[in-house]
Design a protein around this nucleic acid. Structure first.
Lengths: 92, 92
DNA sequence: TGGCTATTTGGCAATATAACCAAGTAGCTA
DNA sequence: TAGCTACTTGGTTATATTGCCAAATAGCCA
């Protein structure tokens, strides 16, 4: 019951979103795709830290990436996750 | 920007939901309010563990509780969070 | 009051997460 | 090829989360 695929998958997505930097990245990617260095301009952290956050999001299936020359562009796969923002904020 | 109240609150809610047992509890509470011992019947864990999960959910503002005699009944405050389930599952 | 049930809290050990630095890889461009 | 830029990966340390047991609290009921 509690070990249903459903809960395992949902937990993975929730964990991926349970960090302010990653929520911020999702917001940025909702607007348009961005490369890692564009994300870094807005986020005060080491590029390796941002790269690791991105790989958490990708493992959860929330984003995808494509390489263009020596840059890597990330895009949001699941814009529905952002509807959640308004749902939560409204409650407060 | 990244330290906006928005992201802090959202992160709190996401962290609260980022555990299979807590997602399962939210599902159970969506059906109707339940006391801790009813939850325990469905969850293979120590009651103290379940109680701690419930306090995480309460701190995030997702559930509320009321005492009836020597039982404590929990109810879902924010049913909108469950819409998220279908959003995610649909993607897969 | 004493004992029972339901629940919460404290403490601890195991595990997971996060951030940085350093080093590695890949694709330019000179 | 050498050096540069963009990014990822490995390693380490600090911090947070989880789950159990034991003990505390609260409300019955005899």
């Amino acid at each position: 019951m509690i070990n249903d695929i459903k809960y395992v998958q949902l937990t993975k997505v929730m964990k991926a979103m349970a960090h302010p930097t990653r929520l911020f990245i999702l917001d940025m990617l909702n607007e348009k795709e961005h490369c890692v260095c564009e994300l870094q301009e807005q986020i005060n952290a080491d590029m390796s830290t941002i790269s690791k956050h991105l790989s958490v999001l990708r493992n959860a299936g929330l984003v995808d990436s494509r390489k263009v020359n020596n840059q890597v562009f990330y895009r949001l796969l699941c814009p529905c996750v952002l509807d959640f923002y308004t749902c939560i904020i409204k409650q407060k």
